[in-house]
C-alpha cells in the first residue's frame, strides 16, 4: 500500500465516520471529477482524424459520465441538502488546436491519472463506512484499472511503439499530477493568511464604512436614474 493510500484509509475513514456529511460531499466531488474527466476526453475527440481513436475516446467518455452518475446518485441518496448537479468550473486540459504531440501528452496524463484514481478508489472503498459508497468506489475503480491499460495501449500507438517516448511522457505526466495534487492540498492552507488579513480589514474598515454603506443603499430612483444616465452618456461620448 502506498503512503498516499495509507493516509486516505486513515484520515478519510476517520473524517467520514466523525462527520458523515463529508462522505456525501466527497461522493459529490468525485462525481464532478468523473464528469470532468469525461468532458476533457470529449474535447479530444474533435482533434484527431483517427476513427478508431475517436471511437475509443467516445466509449471512454460514456464510462466516465456513467461513473459520475454512480457517484452523484450515491451522494444524492445521502444528501440532506441539494447537492451541486454540475461542476463549478472546468479548465480545459487540451487546447483546441492541439497537435499529435500534445494529444499524446494528454493521453500520458490520462493514463497516469487513471492509475492514480484506480489506487485511490480502492483506498477510499476501504475507508468508507457506507456499503453503497464502497460498492461505487470499487465499481468505478475496476473500470479505471481497465482504462489505465487501455490508455497505455493508445499511447503506444500514438508514439509508434516508441517505449522510451512513452516512459518519458508518463514520467513527466506523473510529476505534473503530483504538482497538481500538491497545489490542491496547499490551496486551503494558502487561504488562511488571506482570510486573517481580510478579517482585520473587515473589522476596522467595516466599522468606519458601515454607516455610509447603509446610506448608499438608500439612494432613490431619481438618484439612481441620474447616475446611470451619466454613465450611459459617458459610454457614448467619443473622446476628442
Amino acid at each position: 500500500m502506498s503512503f498516499r493510500g495509507l493516509l486516505i484509509r486513515v484520515f478519510s475513514g476517520l473524517a467520514w465516520r466523525i462527520r458523515p456529511k463529508r462522505l456525501t460531499q466527497a461522493l459529490s466531488e468525485f462525481s464532478h471529477i468523473e464528469k470532468d474527466s469525461g468532458a476533457q476526453l470529449r474535447a479530444c475527440i474533435g482533434l484527431t482524424d483517427d476513427n478508431a481513436l475517436r471511437g475509443y475516446l467516445f466509449q471512454h467518455v460514456l464510462e466516465e459520465y456513467f461513473h459520475a452518475e454512480l457517484f452523484s446518485t450515491a451522494a444524492h441518496k445521502r444528501a440532506t441538502q441539494q447537492p451541486m448537479l454540475t461542476i463549478p468550473n472546468r479548465v480545459a486540459m487540451i487546447s483546441a488546436d492541439a497537435d499529435d504531440q500534445e494529444i499524446a501528452e494528454f493521453f500520458a496524463y490520462v493514463h497516469v491519472g487513471e492509475a492514480s484514481v484506480n489506487r485511490d478508489f480502492r483506498s477510499y472503498a476501504a475507508a468508507s463506512p457506507s456499503k453503497d459508497a464502497r460498492r461505487v468506489f470499487l465499481r468505478a475503480g475496476a473500470d479505471e484499472g481497465r482504462h489505465e491499460a487501455d490508455t497505455l495501449d493508445v499511447l503506444a500507438t500514438l508514439t509508434n511503439g516508441d517505449k522510451r517516448a512513452v516512459k518519458k511522457m508518463a514520467s513527466s505526466a506523473k510529476w505534473a499530477l503530483r504538482r497538481r495534487q500538491f497545489s490542491d492540498a496547499m490551496h486551503g492552507i494558502g487561504k488562511l493568511p488571506l482570510h486573517v488579513m481580510l478579517g482585520l480589514v473587515y473589522a476596522f474598515f467595516g466599522l468606519m464604512a458601515r454607516r455610509s454603506a447603509q446610506t448608499r443603499l438608500r439612494f432613490t430612483d431619481k438618484q439612481s436614474t441620474a447616475i446611470l444616465s451619466q454613465q450611459i452618456d459617458a459610454f457614448f461620448e467619443v473622446p476628442q
Binding site: Y202, A203, L207, A209, A213, R216
Partner: peptide, 11 residues
C-alpha cells in the same frame, strides 16, 4: 457596499 452594510455579520 452591500457586504459592509451588514457589518459585523457579513464577513
Amino acid at each position: 457596499v452591500s457586504s459592509l452594510s451588514g457589518w459585523p455579520f457579513s464577513f
